[in-house]
């Protein structure tokens, strides 16, 4: 083979694939996501729910806290109250719209805070390993050992009711699982050759954590966090239901479910509405997180 010794620079070029469309990471995630109609539908639904909660004062036909003795427990489709009214004659539609503000905030905020705090601890534990890992993860395990509902109730119970305490207790509940996911992902990245290559090029530990570890850890953590949003809504509703969340006149889906419970034999459909709201929102978040997981998988 004397003719095989031509310049190596031209190798790999001529016979190569036709130039593929090259996109950035998030662009390629979107490209996969845009054909997943179910996820897109649920995403739209979530946006709709969030917007309706944000714009509740403009959308709600009545004051959600104004009771009316004359119109108690009206059925769905009533002339005045489209979704009926509760045992104090308050408009369900208005309360659902306003209640979405508290419930969604309680779904998203604790998870967001838990993601940040748990993520940081998890990345540190996973990347450093050894003793650091042991201290962080064993502490997490102590919290992880309790069922989440029990833990939330215990913390809320000791802190007392109110929205801040509910937020704090839910955040504490979500830190350990998110920390665990981040730790697993980070400890896998730590052993990758590209991290060694980055170290060999003189990058500082902080740079490596920021540039290599974070970007790899972020997708499993985000996906997991999005599944927790629905759990958080349910937990927050549960706490409110037990009287450990928002206090009564303020509308909240969990609280509504709790108070309407007594009227279930009178107006079953009306009583189910806050439950349906919780259900639809949780399912939407679950489906979106599933879709995200598929779309964020680089190799698919």
């Amino acid at each position: 083979m004397t003719d095989a010794t031509s310049d190596p620079i031209s190798f790999d070029q001529d016979a190569d694939l036709p130039q593929a469309v090259v996109r950035g990471y998030w662009a390629s995630v979107w490209n996969r996501l845009k054909y997943d109609y179910v996820t897109l539908f649920c995403l739209a639904l979530i946006i709709l729910i969030v917007l309706s909660a944000v714009f509740a004062p403009w959308l709600a036909p009545y004051d959600p806290e104004k009771s009316s003795m004359a119109y108690r427990l009206k059925p769905v489709g009533h002339d005045k109250y489209i979704l009926g009214s509760d045992e104090q004659g308050r408009d369900i539609l208005s309360r659902i719209l306003y209640g979405g503000r508290v419930s969604l905030a309680m779904g998203i905020l604790p998870v967001a805070l838990g993601t940040i705090i748990g993520g940081i601890f998890g990345i540190i534990a996973g990347y450093y390993g050894g003793k650091v890992n042991m201290i962080i993860m064993r502490t997490m395990d102590v919290f992880f050992a309790f069922p989440s509902v029990l833990l939330a109730v215990a913390i809320s119970g000791s802190l007392g009711g109110g929205i801040q305490n509910q937020l704090a207790s839910l955040t504490i509940v979500f830190i350990p699982p998110l920390c665990r996911v981040a730790e697993t992902a980070a400890s896998q990245v730590r052993n990758m050759d590209f991290v060694d290559a980055a170290r060999a090029s003189g990058a500082s530990t902080f740079s490596i954590l920021k540039d290599h570890v974070l970007i790899t850890v972020i997708s499993p953590v985000l996906v997991y966090a999005s599944t927790l949003v629905s759990a958080s809504i349910l937990l927050a509703s549960g706490l409110s239901f037990l009287g450990l969340g928002v206090s009564p006149p303020t509308p909240d889906w969990g609280l509504m479910l709790s108070t309407l419970r007594q009227s279930i034999w009178v107006q079953p459909l009306v009583c189910a509405i806050p439950g349906i709201a919780i259900l639809i929102t949780s399912i939407a978040f679950n489906i979106v997180s599933d879709g995200l997981r598929v779309a964020m998988d680089v190799k698919s």
């Binding site: 990471y25 052993n191 990758m192 050759d193 590209f194 060694d196 290559a197 060999a200 090029s201 290599h212 970007i215 790899t216 680089v298 190799k299």
Partner: peptide
Amino acid sequence: QMVFQDSYSSLNPRF
């Protein structure tokens, strides 16, 4: 500097 064995972990898949 070092050249690693070609494997799934030699390059950051996100870069």
